[in-house]
Design a protein around this nucleic acid. Structure first.
Lengths: 128, 128
DNA sequence: ACGATACATGAGCGATGGTTCATACATGGA
DNA sequence: TCCATGTATGAACCATCGCTCATGTATCGT
């Protein structure tokens, strides 16, 4: 029994494998949520910004730029993006603006990111 | 005491905050590792592919395409990228090719991704 | 051997994203 | 009030990315 061609132009070959999965793969909404979250760390500049902020309580823009070797303008663009995605928040003191990680959710994400990056993979077969 | 202008064109304002962080922010190598890992899930198509594979032992290309509503060609491109980044591996049976998650490291990453996406954030301030 | 099927890949295209440059805005010091 | 400093933002540019289309390759059935 072939399942009907409703999803795309190909047929389903193993309905007994696919049947139980229908409706269980993440929805578009959840997929977007995953993408938004993981995109925070899918850029080397953002990864280093978030990591630096995870090591300190808060840092001002020019200190962050200095520490990471970034231009002030480039850093400000990324900080705006991180603010919009609710990963960081800012506090103004005169003309100095301090940034910090927004909550423990982001802090844990950064920690997990480092752990994933550094832990050895299980020994894997070479073929790709 | 101002730290010297070696990193970029701006000065460092708070050397007492920045000093302890020098050398502790992730290196370029680690940052690239984080990016490679998190980029796997920073795309809705890849996120759904990996999630579908996490729900089944293995799936063939046309079943995956059918289940996710993707074109065979687009899916194959993404599978090649996932193979190259050692997230999935494949097994050929005649002209059918089955894909599966490569190891428990990827499986845990996908599980964590879903948990991150679905758990409520701490109640956050509105201002961005 | 030939045709069908499953899958892979390259080229092309449009969209997206990151950085630089220039400039604007907010604040503080003289 | 004026100038300096810290920060933010828009425009432009260039590189990258994801998908479609067309086609190639491997395998199976007749």
């Amino acid at each position: 029994m072939e399942l009907t061609l409703e999803r795309c132009e190909v047929e389903c070959l193993h309905p007994q494998h696919v049947g139980p999965l229908i409706g269980r793969v993440i929805s578009s909404g959840d997929a977007e949520e995953v993408v938004t979250t993981f995109d925070l760390l899918a850029d080397p500049t953002r990864a280093r910004i978030l990591h630096a902020l995870s090591l300190a309580d808060e840092l001002c823009v020019c200190d962050l730029a200095w520490l990471l070797g970034l231009s002030q303008s480039g850093l400000s663009h990324q900080l705006r993006l991180l603010r919009e995605r609710r990963a960081v928040e800012r506090r103004r003191a005169g003309r100095i603006v301090y940034y910090r990680l927004r909550d423990c959710h982001i802090r844990r994400l950064v920690r997990d990111a480092l752990r994933h990056a550094r832990e050895p993979r299980p020994r894997a077969r070479e073929a790709v």
